[in-house]
Simulated scan of single mutants.
Amino acid sequence: MNTTPRKLSPRSQAALGRFLARLDELGATLLEDRWLGVSKPHRVRCADGHESTPRPADVARGVGICRACAGQDPKAAEAEFLARLAELGATLLEPGWLGSKKRHRVRCAQGHDCNPWPSSISRGRGVCRTCARSDTGTAEAAFRARLAELDATLLEDRWLGAGKPHRVRCPEGHIWSPRPKNLHKEGSGCRGCAGRDPKVAEAEFRARLAQLGATLLEPTWLGTSTPHRARCAQGHDCAPRPSGVRSGEGICATCAGKVWDVLYVIADEWGELVKVGITSGDPRPRLARHRRDLGLGQVVRLITGLPDGVAREIERQVLAELEAAGVWPVWGKETFYGPRALNRMLDLIDHHPAVRQASQDEPGQLVQS
């Protein structure tokens, strides 16, 4: 690849190296004569000879490089579908290709008319519901048999359909409403036993707080993944997530030595990559590590001395705002590409009441580039 027309930054060189290494791992060949950037499509020839245009940022997140090999190429998908039908002795009744995500009228080898999705066929499913014993009568029998295996009791007085929730009581007495078509995917089935039932999760969270001598400050249950305001046994205000507590995390960041009181936004020399993050105490070691490892040496915002929980709250708001706007990270969860991401970050951060208060109380706490 020719890189002489434009000198690459250390960050771009690292991204290029990872992209080329991944292509080599997959036996693919890069057809471009220069680096176009992490978010630009690059022409590539895969190991099977298909030409495609993946973006390095997508490849870094684990996305494949070849649509044809992934079954997303229309011509390849149609050919695969027809070949599979022929293999199964089935006949396509449609006059033409409708797309991989559209049902196609088919007659199976046993003469049953059916409507499979090509995308389902490519994942190894059969073409005929009747032959696969997934018709209505068979589905009800399979559902009742699965409940018997789980020692669960069906509370409905009639069959509602494979896609409709049915009230069921598990051996522990929890009541939940699985869909028959999904029950085989849900392990033991019961949300309460699996810790996913809201009432059970709330009760477990409150019991764990009581066990640790902590007090819940929230007036209502907010959900397993949402931080809940609490006060630990040492009197520190904290905001643990019930799901984190359930998995063994502590409830108090102060007691654990992690007071997140610093918020920062950093970028590379050219402003192509930006990152939002939080840390505790002196931010210099964390910033130095990002400068060394990621090439992000430009400090755009640095707010120190924030109250407990505020830096983490602002970071969550920034990431949620970017996701809602369709701006996705190109590296990890907090590193984004381009000025669009940076402008949204700064707009939310600079107008946050805690940040404005910090800049008024201690002007040295707020650093702006």
Rank of each mutant, 00 (worst) to 15 (best):
1 M>H: 05
6 R>M: 10
10 P>Q: 01
14 A>P: 04
15 A>H: 03
20 L>A: 07
21 A>E: 10
21 A>V: 11
23 L>H: 04
26 L>K: 01
27 G>T: 02
32 E>I: 05
37 G>R: 10
37 G>F: 10
39 S>R: 14
43 R>Y: 01
44 V>R: 02
47 A>P: 00
49 G>R: 03
54 P>W: 01
56 P>V: 11
62 G>T: 07
64 G>Q: 05
66 C>H: 02
76 A>H: 06
77 A>L: 03
78 E>G: 07
79 A>L: 08
80 E>T: 14
84 R>W: 13
86 A>P: 00
100 S>K: 13
101 K>N: 03
109 A>Q: 09
113 D>N: 06
114 C>R: 07
116 P>R: 08
117 W>Y: 10
120 S>N: 15
125 R>T: 04
132 A>G: 10
136 T>H: 02
137 G>K: 07
142 A>W: 02
143 F>N: 00
146 R>P: 01
153 T>E: 13
155 L>R: 11
156 E>C: 11
159 W>H: 04
172 E>Y: 07
172 E>H: 15
173 G>H: 00
181 K>M: 15
182 N>W: 13
182 N>G: 01
184 H>M: 01
187 G>W: 04
189 G>C: 08
189 G>Q: 03
191 R>D: 05
192 G>T: 03
195 G>V: 12
196 R>L: 09
199 K>W: 02
201 A>L: 02
207 A>I: 12
209 L>T: 14
225 S>F: 12
225 S>Y: 05
232 C>G: 08
238 C>K: 13
241 R>F: 06
244 G>K: 12
247 S>Y: 13
249 E>L: 15
250 G>T: 14
252 C>T: 04
254 T>H: 15
255 C>P: 13
258 K>F: 15
261 D>C: 07
261 D>P: 14
271 G>P: 00
275 K>M: 06
276 V>L: 07
278 I>E: 00
279 T>F: 08
281 G>P: 04
285 P>N: 06
287 L>Q: 02
290 H>W: 06
293 D>L: 15
293 D>M: 12
299 V>S: 00
299 V>A: 03
299 V>C: 03
301 R>T: 08
301 R>S: 10
309 G>C: 04
310 V>P: 08
312 R>D: 14
315 E>H: 09
322 L>M: 08
325 A>P: 05
328 W>F: 09
346 L>Y: 02
347 D>W: 05
351 H>D: 14
352 H>F: 09
354 A>R: 05
357 Q>T: 11
358 A>I: 10
360 Q>K: 15
361 D>L: 14
363 P>N: 09
363 P>C: 14
365 Q>Y: 09
369 S>H: 09
369 S>D: 10
